[in-house]
Design a protein around this nucleic acid. Structure first.
Lengths: 189, 189
DNA sequence: TCACTAAACTAACAAGTGTTAGTTAAAAGT
DNA sequence: ACTTTTAACTAACACTTGTTAGTTTAGTGA
């Protein structure tokens, strides 16, 4: 665990600002002010505004990809795979709430890396859907529209970044458990 | 049902562009090009870029407020109130998917109307939470964390704008029913 | 001590921003 | 027939944008 470099500080500060106003509304001068320096000085550490966005989004997207890959290979029931997905989202989001905002809202500004990002996202959703469909086949999962199930779960999980910072009292574990219960068992008594 | 004015056309076109790139990334020249005219000509119909955003967001926010008010006053079980909320979101989103994107992602750029918007949103969430809490008290709703329940439902409902355009074969009614089932009864068999 | 490097600075640029002023041409109202 | 309105236009504005060039300053290794 290396110390946080100046470049990392800039990227983390940028992620925070991007979360508040969105990528396009944050200027390099905004970022510089937040860092306590002048805009031109940022370029001693980063190549471009684009590159900051890329650094924020791609690393998280790859975390999800490798996390999903481990879940796919794990030998547990499909319901338990879904629970693992919930935990994956809670964990990744917990240690990078700001970055998750950019991933959700600013991916379309990626330019060079857009295709790569879309590919990762597509693969992720395909794997997610496959688990649900297999769960339906094995009667673990109710026979509802699998795409609606995925949509419902995934949108909730993708919005965790909005919610986790407001509920810091809740441990990641507790949240993952409660959320799994609500998402999987429903709320009807 | 009056004919669509030129101003409405501009606002609808803007909503579409805002959905694709976000408010800040869309320029008045982008909007003008999409309308087949010059940027300056837009100002014959609208006062400012800000005003377009306001027109998009506030009208939808008020739709939600009045919809919620009807649900609150309706004499049905709390579970059925929750189902009505699902239907409310499906209906509003169905006839204004583009605007819902701005409401979700660009509300922070409202400036003058920001406080008003936040007030409406806050009241809405308070009412939503109250229905869930009363459902828990009357044992209609499982005794999970009410805030997690609301978070889970609301984030799914708020993301409908991403999904409805991709599933035009599904009628608003069918979608509301399927979604209610998934959100309320869960997916576990 | 001296060269080198890291990381800040000032100054400037070319392009793009929302918006205003003034003009024009066609349509509508009287 | 004349006036008014509508809705487009061109030209320009003051300001902001991301970024580059060149300079300065402080710390590091030889």
């Amino acid at each position: 665990m290396k110390l946080e470099t100046r470049k990392d500080e800039i990227i983390n500060t940028a992620a925070k600002l991007f979360k508040e106003k969105g990528y396009s509304a944050v200027t390099m001068r905004d970022l510089a002010t937040a860092m306590g320096m002048k805009a031109a000085s940022l370029y001693n550490h980063i190549n471009s505004k684009q590159d900051i966005l890329k650094a924020i989004i791609i690393s998280i997207a790859e975390e999800f990809t490798s996390g999903m890959s481990i879940i796919i290979d794990s030998e547990v029931s499909n319901i338990n795979k879904l629970k693992k997905i919930v935990t994956l989202h809670v964990n990744i989001t917990s240690h990078n709430t700001n970055g998750m905002a950019s991933l959700n809202n600013d991916w379309m500004h990626l330019e060079d890396q857009l295709d790569y990002y879309l590919q990762l996202r597509n693969e992720y959703e395909t794997n997610f859907l496959k688990i649900i469909k297999e769960g339906v086949l094995s009667s673990e999962v109710k026979n509802s529209n699998p795409e609606i199930i995925m949509f419902s779960m995934l949108t909730t999980l993708r919005s965790l970044y909005l919610w986790i910072p407001k509920k810091e009292d809740l441990s990641a574990n507790d949240l993952a458990n409660s959320l799994s219960q609500v998402l999987i068992d429903g709320i009807n008594n």
